[in-house]
Write a protein that binds this DNA or RNA. Structure first.
Lengths: 129, 129
DNA sequence: TCATCTGTATTACTATCATAGTACAGTAGT
DNA sequence: ACTACTGTACTATGATAGTAATACAGATGA
């Protein structure tokens, strides 16, 4: 399911938020799909329910999901808040990303393949056993 | 120089650490080069000297730099193999890029197409093209 | 109605992050 | 010696992050 590294400098709620966002934008989670319940996901990831609740709350603020008391949390691609200048911002992000990756010595092909791999959610952290 | 986002969920000391590591692995900082002094860099980035000191301390623990009291902090890559760091840093860059783009409301497909388009304009083609 | 699930809210506690300020020790140039 | 740098160390404070436990409210099915 999802992968949490408690030793990471990135907060747990942020790690989880990023992975769920990635699942949504890559189409693995679709409009109307139900996320695991807060308590269920917390138990599965061995983290605190409050931390999962914080993630879900932020995802709702960003328009990715909608919470319904007694029912659960559901994907909502409809009412996402889009910035008017998001294209320009995205192009700046892209230029910056390319610049850094090229500085590392990566070719255009390697950059594309690396991005594709990460978009597919292929995460490889040091997993023992 | 370096870029700090105080609103990011990633701690300031970690943002700075990643950027300095990127400079080293990219070759912009070479063996023996002197980093800005703690107080100088803190003033330039408008962050606390203790935070810069923490970054430098961790970089020293990781073997990227050596601190000398009264003199400064110097790059010491030695005969370290930077190849493993290269991939690790690229994956961190990619994760950051995807998270920001997804936060803008872009789908995985849009991200891939946008990157591909920018790559064609910005990177010199290799000989095997 | 009752049990059991769901999200939500609150309090308490610990650890980390970042800040501010002070102080001490090593190096170099005048 | 003096000054001005350098890294290092320490205390203190406030904001976040994460955990733990409890309670409340809405939804569902027996």
């Amino acid at each position: 399911m999802y992968n949490i590294d408690s030793r990471s400098a990135i907060p747990v709620y942020e790690q989880l938020k990023r992975q769920i966002m990635l699942s949504i934008v890559s189409g693995r989670l679709d409009d109307g799909d139900k996320l695991p319940s807060i308590r269920e996901l917390a138990a599965a990831l061995r983290i605190n329910p409050n931390t999962v609740a914080k993630t879900y709350r932020q995802l709702e603020t960003d328009g990715f999901v909608t919470s319904r008391k007694g029912l659960g949390v559901f994907i909502t691609t409809g009412n996402r808040e889009l910035q008017s200048n998001r294209i320009e911002i995205f192009e700046e992000l892209t230029d910056e990303y390319i610049s850094k990756a090229a500085g590392l010595g990566l070719t255009a092909d390697e950059i594309m393949k690396g991005l594709e791999r990460s978009l597919k959610g292929e995460i490889e952290h040091d997993k023992n056993e």
